[in-house]
């Protein structure tokens, strides 16, 4: 029955994947709202810019690497190379956590430079909020990876369905691209 099901399956996207794409559109709208607010606010009096800490360049490299590793993990899963898959998914999760830690460290550097929330708001406050919200979305991705990590190491559950791995990797690439967009947006506009 199942094989028959697969063979007659129409070339249609899995509903959960489609749901994820719509959710991504929704998240994009949220950040579009915030970056448009940035542009509107930037033309008002009292605007101040900020020097972007070097650390953000390193975190960009980390998240790019994690995108590569999640893609390789997906490939390993599809080839049923479970040992490699487990390693790669661990690497991705570690890189994700590393990214979040680096973001927090960069925020602390900025804060120590005297860039707080008080007074007239400029690019710095937007940076905290926009990059902070992005980091929260990465946290969501890390949680998804951890769930898969536990599943991958549990001996009781045998998982042959690539959908959840594909969902996680799509989302992971999305937060990566979102970061690239936000980072370039800040570099360009400051």
């Amino acid at each position: 029955m199942i094989t028959e099901v697969v063979s007659t399956q129409r070339k249609k996207i899995h509903p959960h994947k489609f749901t994820l794409w719509v959710a991504i559109a929704s998240i994009i709208m949220m950040f579009a709202g915030l970056t448009s607010a940035y542009i509107v606010k930037g033309s008002l009096p009292g605007w101040s810019t900020v020097e972007i800490p070097q650390l953000f360049y390193y975190s960009t490299a980390v998240i790019l690497l994690s995108s590569v590793s999640v893609q390789m993990a997906l490939k390993a899963f599809k080839e049923r190379n479970m040992a490699l898959y487990r390693q790669l998914i661990t690497v991705t999760a570690v890189l994700g956590i590393g990214f979040i830690v680096m973001q927090v460290l960069a925020f602390m550097q900025l804060w120590d430079r005297g860039l707080t929330m008080e007074g007239s708001s400029g690019a710095g406050q937007f940076l905290y909020i926009i990059f902070g919200l992005h980091a929260l979305h990465v946290v969501g991705g890390v949680i998804a990876l951890l769930v898969m990590f536990i599943k991958a190491f549990s001996s009781r559950i045998r998982n042959y369905d690539p959908v959840s791995v594909e969902l996680a990797s799509t989302y992971w690439h999305f937060v990566d691209l979102l970061w690239i967009y936000l980072f370039i947006f800040f570099i360009m506009s400051i």
Partner: peptide
């Protein structure tokens, strides 16, 4: 507070 915009 200064420089903010309620219109935003």
């Amino acid at each position: 507070n200064e420089g903010g915009s309620a219109i935003l």
